[in-house]
Design a protein around this nucleic acid. Structure first.
Lengths: 200, 200
DNA sequence: CGAGACATGTAACCTGTTACATGATTCC
DNA sequence: GGAATCATGTAACAGGTTACATGTCTCG
């Protein structure tokens, strides 16, 4: 249901076509939200039907015609109402964490490879965040000062949590290695039993 | 597509009914994955059709009958293949972060309320994680030592990233307050312009 | 007597992904 | 000549949510 609000949000900045929105998503909004172009076009039509946005057709020569959307008053009100509505419980569906949960099935070697791959992903996200922050600070220096305050803070927050994940992954890899050494020792019994980890 | 693997994962631990799985999800797997009961039942039937699991019907008196599922060899192989498959790019759709992106539309007062609500959510998740860790350490002390190694590490990782988010939120609230004071000052022009933050 | 555990499902709907279709212009 | 940009869509499918239906037993 949030794509709707993402669209209201970007349209609150300026009038845009579906294509413009997709580009803006890919560039600026990408790390907090994204959607395929077909989904964007479909949603825009639905929102126009619901009177949250209106559109006007722009005739162009040497380029395909396009349809520019902007917020109606109802759309603007809907966006503001959403912004102050109660926060959702942040319960994530992270495929990587799900894997970790069942990682005991894997050899330490395979597990290590996976952790390293994830670490590389996290580090590349950190690079993207750093890039974004430097773009923001350029903009703020040159033109308006107060603008992009929230965007800057947001990216800074993502940098921090990604950083924490990276540190955790590095420790985990290290501990996995030392466990691997300790594993050359005897093997105590590992019996069958009902899972006591099931307790809430 | 990951629900399938979550189901294969829990069934790899022991034979379970749809109902058992739902309960196990709510308790132990909850913070990495969850699903509604109707989705679980539907998916189980599909997986049985695909020969990843088999089931047997258990007649019960004084309780409804139930259907217990367990992995086939094919299911077990599918799970292992998934566990070592390339990691997905962790690009998140976090409604809260999306809100932050458009927060300039809100008064500082409203924004502050939102940040505080999120902080409370994060803190309650930290409590859940702490609880989970103490359960795990009880189990490890009493019975098998090596068991739950990955689960423990996983929860520890979530604790860390949640912690980082909490720290960031607290700073953000503090800075918002000091910005609020500085706002009692004059107001420089904020004109219309094409968005330079659009640069990739 | 009502609430909650146990147990499984159907139906409708919304959201998201992928593949395909079209076609001019511009840049290398 | 081929790729990228501009521009909008359809169709089919997969994944996920919500509401509803059914019925027994147990515990407070």
């Amino acid at each position: 249901m949030s794509l709707k609000y993402a669209l209201l949000g970007v349209l609150s900045m300026r009038e845009m076509s579906g294509y413009d929105i997709k580009r803006h998503f890919d560039r600026a909004v990408h790390f907090v939200w994204n959607a395929s172009d077909s989904q964007i076009y479909r949603e825009l039509r639905g929102m126009e039907r619901d009177k949250l946005i209106t559109s006007r057709l722009i005739q162009q020569e040497s380029k395909p015609n396009k349809r520019l959307y902007r917020l109606t008053d109802a759309g603007s009100a809907e966006l503001d109402a959403w912004l102050v509505s109660p926060v959702e419980t942040p319960y994530s569906k992270e495929p990587f964490l799900l894997r970790l949960f069942f990682m005991e099935r894997l050899s330490d070697d395979d597990a290590r490879k996976l952790l390293e791959a994830r670490l590389r992903e996290v580090e590349s996200l950190l690079d993207v965040a750093a890039e974004r922050l430097s773009t923001y600070s350029d903009v703020s220096r040159s033109a308006q000062p107060e603008r992009l305050w929230w965007q800057t803070r947001l990216v800074e927050g993502m940098r921090r949590t990604q950083s924490a994940e990276g540190a955790w992954l590095r420790e985990l890899i290290r501990d996995l290695d030392s466990r691997r050494s300790a594993r050359a020792e005897p093997d105590a019994g590992s019996g069958e039993s009902d899972d006591p980890a099931d307790t809430p």
